[in-house]
Design a protein around this nucleic acid. Sequence first.
DNA 1: CGTGTAAGGAATTCTGACACG
DNA 2: CGTGTAAGGAATTCTGACACG
Lengths: 109, 109
Amino acid sequence: MEQDTSYKERKVITIGVVSELTGLSERQIRYYEERKLIFPERSHRGNRKYSFADVELLIDIANKREEGVQTFEIRQEMLKEKRKEEDKKIRKELMRGQINARFGVQKDS
Amino acid sequence: MEQDTSYKERKVITIGVVSELTGLSERQIRYYEERKLIFPERSHRGNRKYSFADVELLIDIANKREEGVQTFEIRQEMLKEKRKEEDKKIRKELMRGQINARFGVQKDS
DNA sequence: CGTGTAAGGAATTCTGACACG
DNA sequence: CGTGTAAGGAATTCTGACACG
């Protein structure tokens, strides 16, 4: 289901390049990971790898930080967003279920 | 005009990751550059950086090589392709020019 | 809390070259 | 021609820690 060929989601960018792309120091980037704001993959021997989506997220984080928002609060907001997304998804699936129940394919047997 | 925010074209991937992604050795990847099949950018201090488009191109090259096609021939084909693309583009622009001449915006002055 | 920095080590990347076929 | 490899050096990345505020 999860098509992970998407260029935006593939984790292939090393921390040095991410640093250039975002203007953040490597220290900051690693710290935001420690605070569970960002989740890079690890290469074979432990090097962090980020996606373009991660880069964009980091830029958002940087903006929030500049406004004085603490990492803890940013995390709260992100979790809230995530819950909202999941809710939407579930509602969609429920709807689909109801439609199928009335007009959809027959259950076999 | 050239919108280079495109994830596919941004050169951000280091040679080690490209090697993993393509299955090619770093030696091979550097050699194909020497033969002018691929054109990475360089980071600040000289490290090669590739795009997803480059990765796909390298996979195509690898397939051709497996069929025994020489790098020189691959280069020929690529140049031919490129010329074809440019031709198409020019024809398109010519067409647009004619349409504008009859129905388009007035030239000022 | 958020970030800088020095520390020490391991892994990465670079170039030019020799080897083989 | 296309690729492997050893060589030496420079740059990258990692972790854990101390510092400051």
